[in-house]
Design a protein around this nucleic acid. Sequence first.
RNA 1: GCCCCCAUCGACUAGCGGCCCAGGUCACAGCCCUUUCAAGGCUGCAGCGCGGGUUCGAAUCCCGCUGGGGGCACCA
Length: 420
Amino acid sequence: MPVKVRFAPSPTGFLHIGGVRTALFNWLFARHAGGEFHLRIENTDTGREVAEATDQIKESLSWLGLDWDGPVTFQLDQTERCQVEARRLLEEGKAYEDEGAIRIKMPDEGVTGWDDAVRGPVEVANDTIEDLIILRSDGRPTYNFASPLEDWLDGITHVIRGDDHVSNTPKQIRVLEALGAEIPVYAHVGNVLGLDGKKLSKRHGAVGVDEFRREGYLPEALVNYLALLGWSYDDKTTIMSREELISRFTIERVAGSPATFDYEKLEWMNGVYLRELGEDAYAAALTTFLGEQGLDWDADLVRRTVPLVQVKLVRLDRYPEYAGFFFRDVTPDPKLLDARVLAAAEEALNKLDPFETEAIEQALRSLAESLELKPGKAFQPIRAAITGTNVSPSLFESIELLGREKTLQRLRAAAALAKD
RNA sequence: GCCCCCAUCGACUAGCGGCCCAGGUCACAGCCCUUUCAAGGCUGCAGCGCGGGUUCGAAUCCCGCUGGGGGCACCA
């Protein structure tokens, strides 16, 4: 039987990073097996912002490259079918009415168990499972009825979901049995925790996918990082392309223990991906990102700054601060300046020909020498004058790219500032 | 309160009885490189929660404890 899995978020808000991880595992599992990955919106509880949240979920998945098969389905669409099935269970004596709602009968003795694909055998005593309501008195199905029912209708073969669903599983298995449906394979993945050891939630920093996007993370990096949160290929492999992830992913190597989300490692990994990009691809990513930030900077100039910044940035959102001086004026802190050095620099660069990196470096080095200053000491005031700060891309290349006119202009302006 | 799940360096993890006085990655520290910051190279710091078993032999198996997480709705 071909593999068929689903990711079933509820449309209550943006896509949570823990949810994304669940989606990713489902997706990797399906793609590895050549099966299908479906997106189902569990809107059993009529939400107010369904449309908006659904769009956002779809966009987040798309951005990450997690494509789904077939149309997006909505649980609410199965309301009638749920009612029909509930009535059937009633007729078959497997359910009963209770104050207008319908409850399913659960066995009082014995156990309900399953062989969890990540945890192994799990058993729950039946006397701890109550007769749950499957249809509310207003006719709407409850989650624990609608979800397994739709899994059955959709022919879902594997249910891969978060740890928090473990206690729902025995209930859903009983529902499925009553329905006469086949029981899918269940796999419960450990939860994602925040730095404080608590389950990740909106309280703990950037947990929505959107936020990672705004902070300049690459989807490839996020996917790679997330894949390693609870799954591993072997004892030493860390960086894996999407294709490698797909071909290597198996549910057997997924861990059942909770994992703490580590921003520092994600950043490091993002840097790895950023550095691996070709210069044109890097420029394209940067331009797109800047556009999303509302910064309409000259794409050609952005492209030319790439060689100067690529190895330096670990996140795209650092670019404006780091390379913004190419696009807008600067106001350096006077404390970083030195009028004598700046005046000398202006003179040295004024009629330099050609105005190129190598010549610039040569000129400034001999300037340092004649002023009897260590190179680093002499360059810092110049750096501040040119870039506005004491942390910047390589000075000589920056000067070449900025051009003679602007360079001299900034040198003069800074020299004036320094005198006060 | 009841039920379920989990437990290796600060973090993510490898380990499925001897290959482990525990390996990799991030973080951290030191050194090298160096025009700042990064990146890179090298070195280092650091862990099997506790107590009982089983076994010739346990991080690996069993039991208990402790700790953490999740669940017990006409929420999903």
